[in-house]
Amino acid sequence: MTPSWTLYPAARFSEFQDAWQHLNREGKNSALLDPAFLAPALELFGTGKERLAVLGGSTPSAMALLRPTGRRGWETFQPSQCPLGSWVSHPSLTWQAVLPPLLRSLPGFPVVLGITQQDPDLFPRPPASRTLKTLDYIQTACVTLQGPFEAYWQARGKNLRANMKKQRNALTKLGLEPRLEILTRAQDMDQAVRDFGQLESSGWKNDQGTAIHRDNAQGRFYTRVLESFCARGKGRVYRYWFGDVVTAMDLCIADESSLIILKTAYNEQASHGTSPAFLMRQESFQHLFEENALDRIEFYGKVLEWHTRWTDEIRTLYHINEYRWGFLPGLLGKA
């Protein structure tokens, strides 16, 4: 008998976390699909309308966190703090096999189910069919941690290497000593997020009201995530100083193979005409190469010009839309 989908209120996610993480580990074991990352996101950014979909019984073969969108649609739960849509499944399953029955099991007679922002390195992009269509989302970049750092650095553009050297010389003339600090203890994360919030508040994000503060939902989310991952030896914060002033920070989590940079901020007022985040990244990347514990660094953001100075490894994240009827994609211009 073919397993069927069962829906639960997403508030019961904690009861299914072990099964969810088992499926995550069956695949690439992404930190972004770890319950320690998703549970705080659901609690802090969910609306209460989300559902947990489970395929199978005591040993599920696929699971998803879903939310209604509009009057006749559903999509994977994915607040802006989450780079990927909330989906895990056994590698043997195909999208074509599991999405049609999931769409039919959702309440409200939806006509479309969206699986948002999927990484082809985690779940291969499926071919299109009458009811299943995919579309490009963004290009994202990574850095493979292979070989000595010096070889990687020499492969960067001449302008980047020259600019970093010029900026370090300028700081020396000002009597400023740049220093990289790596925080990995759970008890340090509260202060780290406070410091990060101060950096964001010094720039344009504060003007737009999007800056992290320790006491807003974003601040609570990143504190909880970092504390959970640090408790398992999988979280770290890079904090970069000019003298006694924090000038740049990266908030990061890791899985078995990748370090994921969640958020970056820098102090615009204390930069002294330099690029503190670039200087920090040169040193943090060197540390990661020399540490030789991970396979790559993931940015998981839209590729911008500055990313291409650090890497030429780029791939495309994608969306999936599963439609109830085969004529809908053409009708909606999605064929």
Rank of each mutant, 00 (worst) to 15 (best):
T2M: 13
S14P: 00
S30V: 08
D34N: 15
P35K: 05
F37W: 14
L42A: 03
L42H: 03
L55W: 01
S61C: 14
M63R: 01
L65G: 08
R67T: 14
P68N: 12
G73C: 10
F77L: 10
F77R: 06
P79W: 13
C82R: 00
P83E: 10
G85K: 04
S89Y: 06
S89M: 15
L93E: 11
L99P: 05
F123E: 05
A128N: 05
S129L: 08
L135I: 00
Y137T: 07
V143W: 01
F149G: 03
E150A: 15
E150H: 09
A151L: 03
N169M: 08
E177F: 06
L183H: 02
Q191E: 06
D195K: 06
H213V: 07
A217E: 13
Q218T: 06
Y222I: 08
L226C: 10
E227L: 10
Y240L: 04
E256I: 11
A265L: 10
Y266C: 00
N267I: 14
N267D: 15
E268T: 01
H272R: 12
A277F: 06
H287Y: 14
E290H: 13
E291V: 10
D295T: 13
G301P: 00
W306G: 04
H307T: 02
R309Y: 14
R315W: 15
